[in-house]
Simulated assay, not measured.
Amino acid sequence: MDILDRLSLFSPLDYSAFGLLVALWIAIDWRIEHPSSKHPSVSVVMADYRREWMRQMITRDPRIFDATILGNLRQGTAFFASASMISIGGVLALVGNKEQLIGIADDLTLSRDPDIVWEIKLMVTLFFVTNAFLKFVWSNRLFGYCAVVMSSVPNEVDDPRTMPRAMKAAEINVTAARGFNRGLRSVYFGLASIAWLAGPIALIGAVLTTCLVLWRREFASHSRSVLLSGDDHIA
């Protein structure tokens, strides 16, 4: 079976649902990381707090507290990276098990599509999970870089190297957090893509629900209101 024959196995609605999945995944990522100045996302607000953290770290003596927080952040990325690796193995095992794929087809839909259709659908999920794994691993490494740069910040406030190095640590910290958040969003859309096994309508519903959840958490959640409340918000 050539590529054209395989593509013909999917309906126009399947292609529309898949296009919606990819488009909204890219769009929500971009919007969260590039919101309007009047309506920032939680991720952007937290980036400001991370920069302030590095400024406060300069005068904190000793800096054990900062090292502990950074260690906890690295543990979080390591946990999600491990979970993603396990998920990758599970999806690959499912793709290689033809009988289990046929069982899923019988349980979720009345139609009997060829095995290749189910394998391709699972490959989409595998893509998102793999992307999440790579994001988590890189985020973990960046937090490690941040720890090294933080350690190089002089204890003397008047040292001309102090503030520039603290700001370097802040930007690496922000970049690491951005990668971690992208990994989480990839997990969310990977979970949504599993709904494609039940058909394109289910995939569309899952994708829209995922976007709604992400939008609410970033732009309309109680935690965002708390971060922005009061006069001490970091501009």
Rank of each mutant, 00 (worst) to 15 (best):
R224C: 00
R178S: 15
G179M: 11
G230L: 04
V213L: 12
D159Y: 04
S186H: 12
W196K: 07
L197G: 01
R224W: 00
S151G: 15
A147L: 10
G190I: 00
V213Q: 08
T210H: 03
C211S: 05
W215D: 13
E171V: 14
S221W: 01
N173I: 15
F189D: 00
S221C: 02
R161Y: 06
E156C: 12
P164C: 03
S193V: 04
R185C: 03
P160G: 06
N173W: 15
R217M: 04
S229N: 02
A177D: 06
I201N: 12
W196S: 02
A169Q: 05
T162I: 06
I194Q: 07
G230A: 03
E218S: 04
I204F: 06
G183R: 05
P154W: 01
A202G: 06
S193P: 00
F189V: 08
E218F: 01
F189Y: 03
R216L: 13
V187C: 09
P160E: 09
A206T: 05
T175A: 14
I172K: 09
V149T: 15
V226H: 03
R182S: 12
V187G: 12
V207R: 00
R161K: 07
D158P: 12
R161T: 06
Y188D: 09
R178P: 14
A220K: 14
M150R: 13
A169K: 08
A147I: 10
V174D: 10
C211L: 06
A195M: 10
V187I: 11
S193L: 00
M163F: 09
L214A: 02
I172F: 08
I204N: 08
S223E: 05
M150Q: 13
V148T: 14
K168C: 15
A206V: 03
I204S: 09
R161Q: 08
A195F: 02
V213A: 06
A177L: 13
N181D: 15
C146Q: 15
G205D: 02
T175H: 14
V157I: 11
T209F: 11
W215S: 13
L184T: 14
R185T: 06
L203Q: 00
T175D: 15
G179H: 12
A195Y: 01
R224D: 01
H222D: 09
I201F: 13
M150P: 11
R216F: 15
R217Y: 11
P160Q: 08
T162S: 10
A169D: 09
W215V: 07
I172V: 12
F219N: 04
D231T: 06
V226C: 03
A195W: 11
G230Q: 02
